[in-house]
Amino acid sequence: MTPIDDLPIRDELRGKTPYGAPQLDVPVRLNTNENPYPVPEDLVRRITERVSDAARGMNRYPDRDAVVLRTQLAHYLSRTTGHQVGPTQVWAANGSNEVLQQLLQAFGGPGRTALGFDPSYSMHALISRGTGTGWISGPRTEEFNIDRAAAVAAIAEHRPDVVFICSPNNPTGTAVDEETVLALYEAAQAAAPGRHGALVVVDEAYAEFSHRPSLLPLIEGRPTLVVTRTMSKAFGAAGLRLGYLAADAAVVDAVQLVRLPYHLSAITQATAHAALEFADTLLGYVAELKAERDRLVTELTDIGCEVTESDANFVQFGRFDDAQDAWRRLLEHGVLVRDNGVPGRLRVTTGTRAENDAFLDAVRAVRKEISQ
């Protein structure tokens, strides 16, 4: 096979690796932040009904603008955050990654830059590079929080066109307070290269798991502040691939300039409709996962691990002299977690109680092996 670097690909893609996590056949898989609970049977039946109805019209293109779905999403956001948004302020796509890609296609691109605070969600940098947008890595504290003063200084120095704020942050689980978001937004507008201001994207993929209220209300009166969400985590719908954003209606108009025609299939829209009808049921599982997440934090700490406080459905833990060795040892005990490349640390997804117990037992065994 021809080596990829022998192809005429863009220079900024040379030497890079695609995003992904190992999917190994082990008893306990806790490496991709999936919701461990299967879809309730009542919802399966509702999905079947809606998809069956959609299938009868598959000779026609789907609703190009997904108006009914966007209306449902707007209602969900308004009800759960207390901040009223309308369907013209909401946009949906195939996972939040496509939402991010569309934002960078519209507001990034060649000659423009995006800034994020690493370690954070690696797709921010990957999608930036994929759209020809320059990537700048901003600072975090030793506790993996955003240092407000240092972040403002980085924005003033680099004058990015797009700023990413991940809250709760992946892979660390740390949340960002409202005051920091506002400070970074103001800094981004002051430092923006053009007269229209920089786009600030708050990635709330794990917002439903957070102890803090959503940052969604901050979009009011801030035309270049965007909040992105997903149905993959809290809704237990990773296989659906449905993400969305809320922002000023002008941002929604902007992403429609770059979206592919009929990008959301009729089947995807029908399945998302059904899932939203069962939102309260699915959020009940979120409450259970939050309790299990907090238990993981407590028990890992009691075991002697160094744990990062988490507002997500996962926990970062360590500190290991050799994180890759610890990862392999856990795998030998039948537990798959994630090595995100954060020095000395690994990340575990919150699973069912039985899965979490198996993980904790494996951690105890590995720590004993390492100490011998």
Score class of each variant (00 low, 15 high):
Asn97Gly: 09
Met58Trp: 15
Pro87Phe: 00
Gly82Arg: 02
Ala92Arg: 00
Arg60Trp: 07
Leu73Ser: 02
Ser96Thr: 09
Leu103His: 10
Thr71Lys: 13
Ala74Cys: 15
Leu103Met: 03
Arg60Met: 04
Val90Ala: 13
Gln102Gly: 13
Val51Pro: 00
Ala55Gly: 07
Ala93Gln: 09
Thr71Gly: 12
Phe107Lys: 11
Leu77Pro: 14
Ser78Gly: 06
Gly86Ala: 03
Val85Asp: 11
Thr71Trp: 15
Ala55Lys: 11
Leu103Arg: 12
Val67Leu: 01
Ala92Ser: 09
Leu104Ala: 10
Phe107Asp: 04
His75Cys: 11
Asp53Arg: 08
Arg64Cys: 05
Ser78Asp: 02
Arg56Cys: 00
Ser78Asn: 04
Arg79Val: 11
Ala106Leu: 04
Asn94Phe: 09
Val51Ala: 12
Gln105Tyr: 03
Pro62Gln: 06
Arg64Leu: 12
Ser52Arg: 08
Arg56Trp: 04
Asp63Cys: 02
Val51Leu: 15
His83Arg: 15
Tyr61Glu: 15
Ala106Pro: 06
Asn97Tyr: 14
Ala74Val: 07
Val90Ile: 12
Ala93Met: 06
Leu104Tyr: 03
Gln101Cys: 08
Gly95Phe: 14
Arg60His: 08
Met58Ile: 08
Thr71Phe: 12
Gln105Ile: 00
Asp65Trp: 02
Ala92Trp: 01
Gln72Tyr: 05
Ala55Leu: 10
Leu73Gln: 01
Pro62Leu: 06
Ala66Gln: 01
Asp53Asn: 03
Leu104Val: 06
Thr81Pro: 02
Tyr76Met: 07
Val99Asp: 13
Asp53Ile: 11
Gly82Lys: 04
Asn59Gly: 07
His75Glu: 08
Gln72Pro: 00
Gly82His: 04
Gln101Gly: 10
Ala55Cys: 13
Gly57Thr: 08
Tyr76Ser: 14
Gln89Ser: 10
Asn97Ile: 12
His83Met: 03
Gln84Asn: 08
Ala106Lys: 10
Ala66Glu: 00
Gly82Ser: 15
Phe107Val: 02
Ala55Arg: 14
Ser96Cys: 12
Val85Lys: 04
Asn94Pro: 07
Leu69Arg: 00
Arg79Trp: 10
Ser78Cys: 13
Ser52Tyr: 09
Pro62Tyr: 09
Asn94Val: 11
Arg56Phe: 01
Val67Glu: 13
Gly57Ile: 06
Tyr61Val: 11
Gly95Thr: 14
Gly57Tyr: 05
Thr88Gly: 07
Asn97Gln: 09
Arg70Cys: 09
Arg56Asp: 04
Val99Gly: 03
Ala55Val: 13
Leu77Asn: 15
Ala106Glu: 06
Gly86Pro: 11
Val90Pro: 09
Leu100Gly: 07
Gln101Trp: 15
Leu69Cys: 03
Val67Cys: 00
His75Thr: 15
Gly82Cys: 09
Asp63Asn: 09
Ala66Cys: 10
Trp91Met: 14
Gly82Asp: 14
Ala106Tyr: 08
Arg50Thr: 10
Val85Arg: 07
Val51Asp: 00
Gly82Thr: 13
Thr71Asp: 07
Leu73Tyr: 01
Gln105Ala: 11
Leu100Ser: 05
Met58Pro: 05
Ser52Asn: 07
Arg56Val: 05
Met58Phe: 14
Thr80Met: 04
Leu100Glu: 12
Asn94Asp: 13
Ala66His: 00
Leu77Met: 03
Val99Ala: 03
Gln72Ala: 15
